[in-house]
């Protein structure tokens, strides 16, 4: 009995507890890619909104949003989300395969559900704002709800998502206060923060766990 390797037992217990309760195959690289897509999207959005901008008498830039512009922006936004999702799934699948784990199991299901609850709430909230022609709060609200979704999901995956979420919430609140700079804050949050946290997670988790 004494000859048994108790140290191995303890480390097995720890790794099994970790593995069974958290989805560990989330790819940091996909965060970086999502950030890049968001920056491209923000750049396109900027050119759609400010394409023919008029400086008003008070020196403010006024934007004219026609139906056509709105549709273009929504198309860009959906393209960014879709591309990010596909990249996330493909890269996480590759990572899961490398670690000999499955992409679709109890942990990833739980992660997805808990991520989607705040996110879907935000999605409906924003859709109703759009329907009522209230555009000013759209960018801040996407940031805030995405941040809340990340914080909620962090209990079920790599812990760093929590800090990304908190950063997003802070940026979202700032952009409510500094209303009118929505696209700038949006690019900062979804673009820059994704790239920063994606890089941290890539170097911390993607490479070590071979």
């Amino acid at each position: 009995m004494e000859s048994k390797n108790y140290l191995q037992d303890i480390s097995d217990i720890k790794s099994m507890m970790h593995k069974s309760s958290r989805f560990l195959s989330l790819s940091g690289l996909s965060g970086i890619m999502a950030g890049i897509y968001a920056l491209i999207g923000a750049f396109l959005g900027y050119h759609i909104i400010y394409a023919n901008n008029i400086i008003s008498a008070d020196g403010y830039r006024t934007i004219i949003l026609t139906q056509k512009h709105m549709i273009e922006i929504i198309v860009v936004a959906f393209a960014v989300v879709l591309l990010s999702l596909i990249t996330g799934i493909v890269l996480s699948y590759a990572k899961a395969k490398k670690q000999n784990e499955s992409l679709w199991d109890a942990t990833s299901k739980r992660l997805l559900i808990n991520f989607l609850i705040p996110l879907a709430t935000g999605g409906f909230f924003i859709m109703f704002l759009l329907e009522k022609n209230i555009f000013a709060f759209v960018a801040p609200m996407t940031l805030v709800f995405y941040g809340l979704a990340c914080v909620n999901a962090s209990k079920y995956t790599l812990g760093y998502i929590r800090y990304l979420g908190i950063t997003m919430i802070v940026i979202g609140l700032l952009s409510v206060y500094f209303l009118g700079y929505g696209l700038f804050f949006w690019a900062l949050g979804f673009g820059v923060c994704h790239i920063v946290y994606g890089t941290i997670m890539h170097f911390k988790y993607d490479r070590i766990r071979k």
């Binding site: 217990i13 099994m16 507890m17 069974s20």
Partner: peptide, 11 residues
């Protein structure tokens, strides 16, 4: 058995 218990302790 250790594995079963480890999984059930955190789930």
């Amino acid at each position: 058995r250790l594995g079963i218990m480890s999984v059930l302790m955190v789930n």
